[in-house]
Amino acid sequence: MSLDELAVETCSWAFGNSGTRFKVFAQPGVPRDPYEKLADAAQVHAYTGAAPSVALHIPWDRVDDYAHLARYAGELGLRIGAINSNTFQDDGYRLGSVCHPDPAIRRQAVDHLLECVDIMDATGSPELKLWFADGTNYPGQDDIRARQDRLAEALAEVYGRLGEGQRLLLEYKLFEPSFYTTDVPDWGTAYAHCLKLGPKAQVVVDTGHHAPGVNIEFIVAFLLREGRLGGFDFNSRFYADDDLMVGAADPFQLFRILAEVLREPSGGIAFMLDQCHNIEPKIPGQIRSVLNVQEAAAKVLRIDRAALSAAQREGDVLAANAVLMDAFNTDVRPALAEFRAAKGLDPDPMAAYARSGYFAKICAERVGGAQAGWGA
């Protein structure tokens, strides 16, 4: 894979207001509808040249005419990426969605997932991304095995609805919002369900969805070997799922993960920035994140794979580690500046956006109406 092929999807909700569990912080110029979210996403792509698609979240990005929304994206030089479902913000989902003990609630949840496939048809989206907040808080609250049966049944129905060129990406998360059991808590659970569903079902790995100390690059390597790594959600965390800017807390971890992902052509892996910019400005936060991924990727592409393989075959531990560290410690920023200039982009995307006046423009224009945010 080359830097020219690296594409990082932005997510629509990253451009809206977000915050902590305690407070959502409003910012000026925040989009009020999906069309304005796409306009902001187009800025990220315009200055980085590496963010050509935007993930939607339903119902946060619900519109009357999805085909029209997709055409508008095309006019901006973008395409619609993954359609993300929402089975966690309805009052009925207090005890779960597709795993809920009540068949009526499960039906409601599955109908929503089928609606998302309809939206895929209308927008040309190739991926349905599923993350379930389902789980339990107390021992004995529900039958753990029965919940897996319900999950499998729901997934099978949705999988059967997928069309040609569409796939289902199943995400997992260690905990939260349920704190005793989570119905899809780890890559093994997601992988097992995907295996039973078929080749159109793959696993999504999110950096922040693991216990501290988990070796994420091992998970990535295993799923790649099995052909089941469908997507990778970039963010950064220090304690738990903080959704901070990718590479912020541990850039070496990002490098190690990409060292596995970029070993082979990764056209089938959907890279997405799944982040919430709570205190930093939205568009620059996304631009900075894309640049962080590019920088890590540029270092990975400098790994001397032949020397690494030779050292590994010979059992030379120090030499093998040195090959990786030499690549990681390389300052690739000048080369990336030249790479952007050769593509007709400003060598410094952050500075170019700051000079553009776009932020002042949207602050002046986006007056009135309801700003987008969590749940909108």
Rank of each mutant, 00 (worst) to 15 (best):
I287F: 00
R313G: 05
G315V: 05
V317F: 12
F255I: 02
V246M: 05
N235K: 10
A341P: 02
A296F: 11
E226A: 13
N329D: 13
A341W: 00
Q286N: 14
R237F: 15
V332Q: 03
A307S: 11
Q286K: 04
A335T: 06
I287K: 01
A335G: 10
L301V: 10
E226S: 10
P334F: 06
R225N: 13
G315A: 07
D250A: 15
I257C: 10
R333D: 03
N292F: 01
P284F: 07
F232V: 04
A297K: 00
E280Y: 13
A327P: 06
G285P: 01
V246Y: 03
L224D: 07
L336F: 08
G267Q: 11
L262C: 04
P265T: 08
D250E: 14
L291M: 14
F252Q: 15
I269E: 01
D242Q: 09
R313K: 09
A306T: 12
I303D: 01
R225D: 12
M272F: 12
I287D: 03
A248Q: 15
Q294A: 11
S236C: 09
S236E: 08
A297Q: 04
R333Y: 07
I283W: 01
F328C: 07
E280T: 14
G315E: 11
G247Y: 03
A320M: 08
S289G: 10
N329P: 06
K299P: 04
A296I: 10
L318R: 14
F252A: 15
V290A: 07
M272Y: 09
L324A: 00
I257Y: 00
E338L: 04
S266R: 11
L273T: 04
D250L: 11
Q312V: 13
P281I: 11
V332K: 02
N278I: 15
R302E: 14
R263N: 09
D316N: 15
F234K: 01
Q294K: 13
E280S: 11
M245F: 05
D233I: 01
G231R: 06
E226V: 10
R302S: 12
F328W: 12
R256L: 11
R305Y: 02
L273V: 07
Q286V: 07
G247I: 04
I269R: 04
P265W: 09
V317Q: 12
E314V: 05
F339I: 05
G267S: 14
A311N: 12
M272W: 09
M325F: 12
I279Q: 13
Q253M: 15
L324Y: 11
V290H: 04
N321V: 10
F255H: 02
P251I: 02
L336Q: 08
D233H: 14
F255M: 04
F234C: 09
A270W: 07
V332A: 07
K282G: 03
A306H: 10
V323P: 01
G247D: 00
M325G: 02
V246W: 02
F252K: 15
R313L: 07
E295M: 11
N329M: 12
G267K: 13
F232M: 06
R302A: 13
N329I: 09
E314F: 10
D242K: 02
